[in-house]
């Protein structure tokens, strides 16, 4: 069940940081006495740029941080917020932890599954939504809650979610 499949889709084009990201990359590196310490900020920059961390992207991060490639891969899998597969434009992350769960997160999640026709970790064929269960988002007082990309939406129910989805194009 917890076997994470190999990252299959790869983008062979990625060789280097685009010129537009150079400043950010240099800035991230400048914060630390050695390059390896910048590995997490570099992954964030990469994810902002490419949406997910493909093997070529992780190789680039490894080169930039002067870390062994397998180690960088391990780091990327350690944190759940790095995407190791392509995600849709809107990444719906539904909290399933206890407070939200008591407030109906399971029902909400099932509703989303039915409505979008996708399950946990899947993406709609049009690339619009990716649905995912996550652990506590630290908004426990206002459950059920869902994070969409970097925005929080709280005190949700089916109707509110439906209305929200309309606005996410």
């Amino acid at each position: 069940m917890s076997h994470a499949p190999a990252v299959t889709a790869i983008d062979p084009e990625v060789r280097d940081w685009p010129a537009s990201r150079r400043v950010e990359v240099d800035e991230a590196l400048s914060h630390y006495p050695n390059r390896r310490s910048a590995v997490l900020p570099l992954m964030w920059i990469a994810q902002r740029e490419w949406g997910w961390l493909s093997p070529p992207v992780l190789r680039l991060v490894a080169r930039t941080a002067e870390l062994p490639e397998p180690e960088v891969f391990g780091i990327a899998t350690f944190y759940t917020m790095f995407n190791l597969r392509p995600v849709g434009r809107h990444h719906l992350q539904v909290c399933m932890t206890i407070s939200c769960s008591l407030m109906g997160a399971d029902r909400l999640f099932r509703h989303l599954e039915r409505k979008l026709g996708i399950g946990h970790g899947e993406t709609t064929p049009d690339g619009r939504f990716t649905l995912r269960r996550v652990e506590c988002l630290a908004a426990c007082g206002r459950g059920p809650c869902m994070q969409v990309n970097f925005d929080y939406h709280e005190n949700l129910d089916e109707a509110r979610v439906d209305a929200l989805l309309e606005t996410l194009t």
Partner: peptide, 13 residues
Amino acid sequence: DALTAHQRGVRTE
């Protein structure tokens, strides 16, 4: 450095 730990906790592989 060919091997590494993927994931974490009980799912470490």
